[in-house]
Amino acid sequence: SLEELLKLARHALRHGEEIHVLDRVITDEHEIKRLIEELERLI
């Protein structure tokens, strides 16, 4: 769900981890922040 993805993204950002989204691995902090902003808009 989007909520789950948002939780994962926030966790990854906090802990400096990578996040796997739709067969992509996002490691860049700015990309993760952008993902979080997009998800928050959708929810």
Rank of each mutant, 00 (worst) to 15 (best):
I26W: 13
E38P: 00
V25P: 05
K7I: 10
L42G: 03
S1A: 13
E40A: 05
T27L: 06
L6Y: 02
K33E: 10
E37K: 12
I32R: 01
R24S: 06
E40T: 07
R14F: 15
R14A: 15
L22V: 08
E4W: 12
A9C: 05
L42Q: 09
G16M: 06
E31V: 08
R10I: 14
L35D: 00
I36W: 01
L22T: 07
R10C: 04
R41S: 07
E29I: 14
R24F: 08
V21K: 02
R10M: 12
R41N: 08
I19F: 12
K33G: 07
K33R: 15
I19K: 01
E4Q: 12
L39M: 03
E37Y: 15
K7R: 13
I43C: 03
T27F: 09
H20A: 09
V25W: 10
G16V: 03
L13G: 01
H20T: 13
G16L: 06
L2N: 04
L5P: 00
L13H: 04
E29R: 15
V21Y: 14
L35V: 06
L2W: 12
H11D: 10
A12I: 02
E29H: 15
S1Y: 14
H11E: 11
L39Q: 00
E38F: 14
I32N: 00
R34W: 12
E3A: 09
A12W: 02
H30G: 14
H11W: 08
V25E: 04
I19E: 00
R41W: 10
L8Y: 08
A9H: 01
H30N: 14
L8P: 00
E38L: 13
L2M: 08
S1G: 11
E40C: 04
H11V: 05
I36R: 01
I32A: 02
A9N: 00
I32W: 02
H20L: 10
V21A: 08
I43D: 01
T27E: 06
E37M: 15
R24K: 11
V21G: 04
R10D: 04
L2A: 06
T27N: 11
L6G: 00
L39R: 00
A9V: 09
K7F: 09
E40K: 06
K33C: 05
E29V: 15
R14D: 14
H20P: 04
E17W: 10
E29M: 14
H30T: 13
E37S: 12
D23E: 07
E3I: 12
R41P: 01
L8F: 07
D28R: 07
E17A: 11
E17M: 14
G16R: 10
I19H: 01
I43W: 05
K7A: 15
H20R: 15
E38T: 15
R24T: 07
L2I: 09
K33D: 04
L39W: 06
L5G: 00
E37Q: 13
H15S: 11
A12H: 02
H15I: 07
L35I: 08
L13F: 05
E3T: 09
L2Q: 03
K33I: 14
L22E: 11
I36G: 00
L42F: 07
E4G: 07
E40R: 06
E18F: 09
L2D: 02
D23V: 03
R41H: 08
E40L: 09
K33A: 10
L39N: 00
H30P: 07
H30K: 13
E31R: 05
E31N: 06
D23S: 04
H11G: 05
G16E: 03
E29D: 07
L6Q: 01
A9K: 01
E17T: 15
E38M: 14
L5S: 02
K33Q: 11
R34L: 14
V21I: 15
I43Y: 06
E17L: 15
L5W: 09
R34M: 13
E38Q: 15
R24G: 05
E29G: 10
I32Q: 03
G16W: 04
E29T: 13
D28C: 05
H15W: 11
T27S: 14
G16Q: 08
L39K: 00
E4K: 12
V25T: 09
E29K: 14
V21F: 14
L22P: 05
I26A: 04
R10F: 09
L42C: 04
E40P: 00
H30D: 15
L35N: 00
G16P: 03
L2K: 04
L39Y: 03
E29N: 09
L42S: 06
E29Y: 13
H20I: 13
L8W: 07
H30V: 12
L39V: 06
G16Y: 04
R24I: 08
R10G: 02
E18R: 08
D23C: 04
L5D: 01
I43E: 02
E4P: 02
A12S: 03
G16I: 03
L6A: 02
A9L: 14
L8E: 07
R24A: 06
L35A: 02
L13D: 02
D28T: 12
H20Q: 12
I26N: 01
T27Y: 08
E31I: 07
L35S: 00
E17H: 14
E17N: 11
R10V: 09
L2H: 05
L42I: 10
E18N: 10
T27R: 12
E40G: 03
L13P: 00
R34T: 12
E31S: 08
I26E: 01
D23W: 03
E3S: 07
L39C: 03
D23H: 06
V21E: 02
E40D: 05
R10L: 14
R24D: 04
L13T: 02
I26M: 08
E37H: 13
H11N: 09
L39I: 10
L8T: 07
E38N: 11
H11T: 07
H15L: 08
V25Q: 05
A9I: 12
H15C: 05
V25G: 03
R41F: 09
H30E: 13
K7W: 10
H20S: 09
H30A: 14
E17P: 02
R10A: 04
R24E: 05
L22A: 13
L39P: 00
E17S: 13
E37W: 14
D23P: 03
D28F: 07
L39F: 03
E18V: 13
L6D: 00
E40Q: 06
K7E: 14
V25H: 08
T27C: 04
S1W: 14
L6W: 03
H15P: 01
H20V: 15
R24V: 08
E31F: 06
E40Y: 07
I26C: 03
H20W: 10
H11Y: 07
D28I: 06
D23R: 02
E37L: 14
I19T: 02
E4D: 11
D23N: 09
G16D: 04
E31H: 06
L8K: 13
E37R: 15
S1D: 15
H20K: 15
H15D: 05
V25A: 06
A12N: 02
L39G: 00
I43S: 02
L8V: 06
E38W: 15
A12Y: 02
E3V: 11
E3G: 06
I26Q: 01
H30C: 07
L39S: 00
L8H: 07
R41T: 08
H15E: 08
R14G: 08
A12R: 03
H11P: 00
R24Q: 08
E38Y: 15
R14C: 05
R24H: 08
R14K: 15
L35E: 01
R14M: 14
E31P: 02
R14I: 15
T27G: 08
L8M: 11
I36C: 05
R41V: 07
I43V: 07
S1T: 12
E17D: 07
L42H: 05
L13C: 02
R10W: 13
I19C: 02
T27A: 11
L2T: 04
V21S: 04
L35K: 01
R41Q: 09
E3K: 09
L8A: 11
L8N: 08
R24W: 09
L35G: 00
E18S: 14
R34S: 12
L22S: 11
I43L: 12
L35Y: 11
L22I: 08
H15N: 13
S1P: 10
R41L: 08
T27H: 10
L42K: 10
A12T: 01
V21N: 03
E38G: 06
R14W: 12
S1I: 11
L6V: 05
R10Q: 13
I36V: 07
I32F: 04
I32Y: 02
A12D: 00
V25D: 05
E4V: 11
L22G: 15
E29L: 13
D28G: 15
E31K: 06
V25C: 04
E3Q: 10
E18Q: 12
R24P: 01
L22R: 11
I36L: 03
H30F: 12
H11L: 07
D28S: 13
E37C: 03
V25I: 13
D23Q: 06
E3F: 10
T27K: 14
H30W: 15
E4F: 11
R34V: 11
R14H: 13
K7H: 08
E38R: 12
E40F: 05
D23G: 14
R10K: 13
L42V: 07
L35Q: 01
H15T: 13
